[in-house]
């Protein structure tokens, strides 16, 4: 279930991914790296958008799933696991973990749920840092090889874009299905939803599990992309950063995560010349953005399109929102 014409939304997302692929041919390696990072984070943001934006469950645990996916990949690939298998395993593992993390949501909601998932993230971070026998502790795991034939920067970007494409199509299908409708119902009015036969427990857990699985998929691309994993990238800061991507792009909008991740990856780069002040400016830009458009950049774009269309009375006035 999506606002606006579903087919047009999918086409827009796929066109964007294609454009990124083409763009990589005129960019320096660092630019290609940034695009890969965008693709990888977008996958995790799509997952969080499902849990938070569509199903309305505030989760600050997405970083944990990215971490689990990254470690699973880093640990298994040297044992000869093919990349596809580690990717599937990471997704599956996080799906199960997401089911577990979803249980608190059956008892608490809103800010309380945010705090519970925050605590789980902190706990998972401590495990990654302290259980050195498994994770390498603070030293982490270095020299993670990229799967052949995706060893060059550009080739690996293509792999990331391929996975992002699959995730895009699958998410699109899911949101259009009765499941997507049930997720929105959960967010808007769980009591009414239950009175219409919607299994609120089941769908709440599923929204966590599917969102988490996409976090795991992100992680299993992240590890070979940066070729080094250690605990600090998977701390609370990443959860907050992913949350920001969802909110800035437009929580509960299909295209939101793509836009939000782009802002989150590029804005710090553009503001880098400010050196120590960049975080302050970044924070102010984000606050300004949210004040001007609480429904995110995609919501803003939708409203501007609406306004333009109203200039042409011949056009039928449909929702027009992405």
């Amino acid at each position: 279930m999506m606002r606006g014409r579903p087919g047009a939304l999918l086409a827009t997302a796929l066109a964007g991914i294609l454009a990124v692929g083409l763009l990589s041919f005129v960019l320096e390696p660092y630019g290609v790296y940034l695009l890969s990072l965008w693709a990888v984070y977008t996958v995790a943001a799509i997952g969080l958008n499902l849990t938070l934006g569509y199903a309305g469950q505030i989760s600050l645990a997405q970083a944990t799933f990215v971490g689990v996916g990254a470690y699973a990949t880093a640990l298994l690939m040297p044992h000869g696991w093919p990349f596809g298998a580690t990717l599937a395993l990471a997704g599956g593992l996080c799906f199960g973990l997401g089911l577990l993390f979803g249980f608190p949501a059956l008892r608490v909601q809103g800010h309380y749920l945010a705090f519970v998932t925050l605590a789980l993230t902190t706990l998972a971070f401590l495990v990654m840092r302290n259980e050195a026998w498994l994770t390498g502790g603070v030293q982490g795991i270095a020299h993670i090889a990229r799967p052949v034939p995706f060893t060059s920067g550009r080739a690996f970007l293509m792999l990331c874009l391929l996975v992002l494409t699959l995730v895009t199509v699958a998410t699109w299908w899911l949101l259009r299905s009765p499941w997507g409708r049930a997720f929105i119902a959960l967010r808007e009015n769980p009591i009414r939803a239950a009175s219409l036969g919607v299994d609120v427990r089941g769908y709440t857990l599923l929204s966590f599990a599917i969102g988490a699985a996409l976090g795991g998929v992100c992680g299993s691309l992240y590890a070979p992309l940066v070729q080094y994993v250690e605990p600090s990238p998977f701390a609370l800061a990443l959860s907050l950063s992913l949350l920001l991507m969802v909110v800035v792009g437009g929580s509960g909008s299909f295209l939101g995560p793509y836009v939000g991740a782009l802002v989150a990856v590029l804005l710090p780069e553009w503001l880098r010349f400010m050196q120590d002040y960049y975080l302050v400016v970044y924070a102010m830009v984000v606050m300004l953005l949210l004040a001007v458009c609480p429904d995110g950049l995609v919501g803003l774009a939708g409203r501007m399109l609406d306004r333009q269309r109203r200039g042409h009375p011949a056009e039928p006035a449909d929702g027009g929102k992405a």
């Binding site: 049930a182 808007e188 929702g319």
Partner: peptide
């Protein structure tokens, strides 16, 4: 109690 962010038709299908 209707679902404000779903269309009228979507509300019925959900039901």
């Amino acid at each position: 109690q209707v679902f404000p962010q779903l269309s009228v038709r979507e509300n019925l299908i959900l039901a």
